[in-house]
Amino acid sequence: MSTYIQNFLKFKPLLIELTGRDIKIKYRRSVLGVAWTLLRPLMMMTVLSVVFSNLFRFQVENFPLYILSGQVIFNFFNDASTTGMNAIIGAKALIKKVYVPKYLFVISRVFSSIINLFASFTALLLVMLALRADMHYISFLAFIPLVLCAVFSLGVGLFLSAVTVKFRDIMHLWAVFTTALMYLTPVIYPMSILPDWMYKIVNANPLTNYLVMFRDVMLYNMMFSGKRFLVGAVEAVVMLAIGMIVFYKEQDTFILNI
């Protein structure tokens, strides 16, 4: 175990460089550059809140914020899992020629998603200020659902990146799956409109857990339930373990299939 940790520490500078590269490349040749990490979620949120507050009116107090908070969590998961999935295939040239612990590529993608998450979180705070929503001290606890969601996403990313090397179909399937998943997560609708059987499915979705916890502390000034926290934590750890095991078993075959 200690050799693993030593190895990780040795490659820590690489992790930082890789994460920096992901961000740099994304905004290269754009005039506003890294400012887009903040501007993009802000603009997306404006569009969504205008559309949804005028089109669909669910009985939800402060509906724009309800959607925006949902978007923060869901988009993070979508971004982290999708870019993580493509991490190994994208690092083809390197993996073929230099020895590097391969999980670094997935972690660096998830890290750059986390940086985007900070940006969209800041955007959410700005919108809350603009709408004069109440801010509460308990909102500082928002990091708990975010960390759990990040761990969960890393597990999904590791798992997907390993199986995608062998079966490229997963890339296309995952795009469909995340679209479906968005409607199975209460991003744009309140849980109360769901019929009983639907409620059970949506509630079983791990993302729902993180999202409800996130909203509780950010919008409703209340502590999330211990049960949600426990279930969410277990799901995150189990997913990470699955991802790590599958990745570990498959990683030596990457070079043959990539």
Binding site: K10, F11, P13, L14, E17, R21, I25, K96, K97, V98
Partner: peptide
């Protein structure tokens, strides 16, 4: 094994030097 294996074509030479250095295990 191949010169420039760790280079990212979209980055500048300076950025690549640091990226490639990190690949070889050097700190910034």
């Amino acid at each position: 094994i191949e010169l420039g294996a760790g280079f990212d074509m979209d980055l500048t030479a300076r950025e690549n030097v640091f990226l490639n250095g990190a690949l070889l295990g050097h700190t910034r």
